[in-house]
Amino acid sequence: MPLLRRGGRAGLGLLLPLVAAIGWEIAVATGAASGRLLPPPSRIGATLWELAVSGDLWLHVEATLVRVGLGFLCGAAAGIIAGALVATIPLLRWLVDPSLQALRAVPSLAWVPLFILWFGILETPKVLLIAVGVFFPVYVGVSGAIASVDRKLVEVGRIFRLSRLALARRILLPAVLPATLVGLRTGLGLGFLFVVAAELMGASEGLGYLLVDGQQFSKPDQIVAAIIAFALVGKAADMALLTLTRPLTRWQDTVRDSL
């Protein structure tokens, strides 16, 4: 029964894009709208099919996934470490946090010329740029979560004479984990945003490259196909992350489960 309910929810999620697609297809077919600037779903589907059959789509998806995957690992690891250190060492917080918060506002494209100068045009700058995108939400999530751990919980741990390690494992980690996982999800999403900028750095494959290529050569069907591919790959990556991390928060009793 819960499986059926979950399937129904997934079906509801598909309803809006499905209605929009059918509506647009009809609008173009009846001549009510021009299909040149925003091609009808049939043409976008045909473009995706051509890309898939030729093998190009998988090449682009693989290139993007590898870059985002590596960037996510680097950025998330750095974000967790930096967040934990800044939250637990006051001197570091006063010293480092203001600069990191300022850098957080720098748009992805602004890094591109600098990264090319520093790291060249191969895979290193692409992965590092994605890592920068992933780093900030993870860093903010972790440092914020540690800083906002309920003092009473820590005091209870101390009353129970828990060692520093046990305190971290039994109290701090469960308290920090939910916000950290939200930070990781946000970071993964930003990784997919930053990959477009990353793939401006001399790439000849990747979904970001496919997107820019479509714009450069007046191919709106390719642009929309790349956007759809991004959406599907991004959603799949997010679901994979959720599935992998769900066991870590199994103990949570949230209102969402009862709605």
Binding site: I116, L117, G120, I121, L122, M201, G202, S204, Y209
Partner: peptide, 19 residues
């Protein structure tokens, strides 16, 4: 080998010696 870059980015790559 072709490196597709916008002028500003190509300039950075050229100065660095990446191309």
């Amino acid at each position: 080998k072709l490196a597709f870059l916008a002028p500003a980015d190509a300039n950075a790559a050229f100065v660095r010696g990446s191309v």
